[in-house]
Design a protein around this nucleic acid. Structure first.
Lengths: 251, 251
DNA sequence: CAGGGTTATTCTCAGCTTGAGTTATTCTTA
DNA sequence: TAAGAATAACTCAAGCTGAGAATAACCCTG
């Protein structure tokens, strides 16, 4: 942090070219059985027409997390209780000198997880906003270093599913084990053994707790009614729900 | 990130009170069988006389990671190959509005891991620098939010030991399984079963590779010569070396 | 309304990993 | 030379995992 010697020795930041600090939000939700990320189309240069993460300058007196929530709320129109149910966490910071051509901008990225959200309201101001399926990301033109930020967020999400109850943030208040399995399959991108998943979820203490109720009907294509569960009180999963190790990820 | 509408609509940061961005480094090493963190004593207000993490302003044109390495190198006097062997990673960012009484300062904290380092050189400038055993941290007066940053760094270190080969960064180029076990015991703060640890370390692919050599002598208090190992090429440990779950950490 | 296809939930079972304890062996120190 | 200490290897029971299969409930079509 501020090292007084340097402060007095000419490293006073007020003598530096101005810098700015923004937050960017990687908001993930599951819609139509796909993992999707919230993007805004930029109206003006630089990167006019490109898509970018929702975000903006951190205001004076505003905390980092508060700025992330504000930006998210502005773009989604979400507020009140639904907004409170969205999980936010700090992802990482990005500050390569030329990441924004206008000036030196440091961006602190946040990750937001929410259950199936409505189409974005595109803010009051302007610019198209949309949920982009991550499978479509490779063909989309993204502004700044936002592709990297999204990839970092994705990897964080995948790994947090393993050892935290994060998956319960992608489903509603009450959910079935199959709902939860769909989250894992969607985020990890491959199918899981239904029986083993079921056993595992129920065996991890505090991950879910039964409500006693079941769904009104069976699935759309048949099957019995499923029991309903609520998120439990665990903050960490022990033992964890591990992804099968893939050699290419390990070395 | 920069949302052009807002940029034009009066959220130009150049109209804001100036902000500054610093990096702070939580440098951890193991000395005298204790986990220690590098601290600098502040000479001038605010927090004169308090201890702080090494750090300072990010220079124009300087990347975040480069700034962290520079600050670390300045305080430890380390350079060249020894510096290259130090592992750096971004920890988190801190930006509560009043964390520094002088102005709005955002700090991006880095974590550095290094094997047994010499006494710090206290920089060319001034101010005492020292390695503080973490067991002594509770009684030390720390500046700013640095206590929180150190705690976050510690938790990160503990957890990265589980699923990455990070422990090999705390030992020299060649080491014995017992050396590695000492790292885990020191960072996690409790003893491990020697036999099981040995079996586990050798069974995780890519964690260590034998050199064929052994130590010159047995341990200082007896015992046979131990085989020497080098760090392997794994980036992730599969299966992981998990800490025993503690109930209080889980709920 | 019967039959086929689907899905939730429960079992089985072999293979693997884990925790705890033991043993053989090699070295240092007294 | 004897005692103590540490490495490395082994044993064994308990628990967890992946894979497959059985059971039962439910939807849809014909």
């Amino acid at each position: 942090m501020v090292n007084e010697q340097e402060f007095l020795a000419g490293y006073d930041p007020r003598a530096y070219p101005a810098v700015a600090v923004t937050v960017d939000v990687v908001a993930l939700t599951i819609r139509d059985n796909e993992l999707q990320v919230l993007l805004i189309q930029r109206a003006a240069p630089p990167f006019a027409g490109f898509w970018a993460l929702p975000g903006g300058f951190v205001r004076p007196e505003e905390d980092l997390g508060a700025a992330a929530r504000r930006e998210f709320a502005e773009e989604t129109g979400l507020g009140g209780e639904p907004l409170r149910r969205v999980h936010f966490e700090q992802l990482a910071s990005y500050g390569t000198p030329d990441r924004d051509p206008r000036m030196r901008i440091f961006s602190i990225a946040y990750l937001a997880f929410a259950p199936d959200l409505p189409e974005p309201t595109a803010g009051s101001d302007a610019g198209a906003a949309e949920w982009l399926p991550l499978t479509a990301m490779p063909t989309r033109e993204l502004a700044f270093d936002h592709r990297q930020i999204i990839e970092d967020g994705l990897e964080r999400a995948r790994s947090k599913l393993e050892y935290t109850p994060l998956a319960t943030r992608f489903v509603g208040e009450e959910f079935t084990i199959a709902d939860l399995r769909a989250v894992y399959e969607t985020v990890w991108g491959h199918p899981l053994h239904a029986g083993n998943f079921h056993r595992k979820v129920l065996s991890v203490p505090g991950l879910v707790e039964g409500t006693g109720a079941t769904t009104e009907h069976g699935g759309p294509r048949g099957g019995p009614r499923a029991r309903l569960y609520r998120a439990g009180d665990a903050r960490l999963l022990h033992p964890a729900l591990l992804r099968p190790a893939r050699e290419e990820n390990v070395r």
